[in-house]
């Protein structure tokens, strides 16, 4: 589970000596053991991608023991208060690092999981947060009026129509016949918004969640949309029996439980969807519709280290 985050942790230059995985193995969670240079890295990345798609995800010996904890998260209980202060420092550091994005509601979910995976190293967590928001997720997901997110929600509705046409047609129909017509927002939106903003943190049990995160980090952000497809696919029968928007919303409570219980079956479904080659086109279409493209701007970030040190002095 979350071998990729662990390897990121190693790449982040943690001072703590900590070799995860079997030192005798030819292939581990740290790149570079397969050969030197770019070729070695590419080979490692390819292997990791294959491994992450296996029915059980990455092998057991790649996993960190402390991640098997279930139930109460780091942020409740007696230690909770201290950990919450840690969480606040990471969020504050990110807000200082990227003032355009600042703090977005939902970030606390992301940062909490990252902190847990990074074994409470605040500076490493900040680096992973920066990498995730600025290198992995689409541009503008969290900034301004969330236009990147809005575009992805719209692109996803199109993708749903292409990949799960019967279900998409049914949801469109329920939206249309809803009282008065024209006032009901698209039915999937309330869910996809939360999924995309929290990277499924509120919907998936920890094991499945980290496997999805592995796939996102290895294969890119289209996995976010493939995961949404997989969820709607699993809920298809339930939704097709709803005869109104109200019945749809009512049945989604049980749907959330079904997804929580699906676990690995959900991840298998994500992998089975493969890829979404049509996505770049849909995204650019909606990104353009949502807002005219802004002129390219030079990012003005303070050095990462200064954001970290500022955060630790708060």
């Amino acid at each position: 589970m979350s071998a990729i985050l662990n390897s990121l942790r190693n790449l982040a230059g943690s001072s703590r000596a900590n070799s995860a995985g079997d030192p005798g193995a030819k292939f581990g969670i740290t790149p570079g053991e397969e050969g030197s240079g770019e070729g070695g890295y590419a080979e490692w990345l390819h292997a990791m991608r294959l491994v992450a798609r296996l029915p059980a995800g990455v092998p057991q010996h790649f996993r960190r023991k402390d991640l098997h904890r279930t139930g109460c998260s780091l942020f409740c209980g007696t230690e909770g208060r201290e950990n919450q202060a840690m969480l606040r420092r990471v969020l504050l550091a990110y807000a200082r690092w990227n003032k355009d994005v600042g703090y977005c509601q939902g970030f606390n979910m992301l940062a909490a999981i990252i902190l847990e995976v990074m074994e409470k190293s605040e500076s490493d967590s900040l680096k992973v947060m920066v990498y995730l928001v600025e290198a992995v997720l689409p541009e503008g997901y969290f900034a301004d009026d969330l236009r990147g997110l809005s575009a992805d929600m719209a692109a996803f509705r199109d993708l749903l129509r292409l990949r799960l046409p019967r279900l998409a047609h049914h949801m469109d129909h329920l939206q249309r016949i809803s009282d008065g017509g024209g006032v009901e927002p698209p039915l999937p939106d309330v869910f996809t918004m939360q999924w995309f903003l929290t990277l499924y943190a509120t919907w998936l049990p920890r094991d499945s969640l980290l496997r999805v995160w592995d796939l996102v980090l290895l294969d890119g952000n289209e996995v976010l949309l493939l995961t949404a497809l997989a969820i709607w696919d699993l809920l298809q029968d339930r939704i097709l029996s709803a005869r109104s928007a109200d019945e749809f919303y009512s049945c989604m409570g049980g749907g959330a439980g079904a997804i929580w219980d699906a676990g690995d079956a959900l991840v298998a479904r994500v992998v089975a969807f493969g890829s979404a080659p049509e996505l770049p086109r849909l995204r650019s279409l909606h990104r353009y519709r949502v807002t005219p493209p802004a002129p390219p701007s030079v990012p003005s970030h303070p050095p990462l280290q200064s954001a970290v040190s500022q955060s630790t002095h708060t």
Partner: peptide, 11 residues
């Protein structure tokens, strides 16, 4: 403190 992410609903 769990802030609302976007929009949510209860019945």
């Amino acid at each position: 403190f769990i802030s609302t992410i976007g929009i949510d609903f209860k019945i």
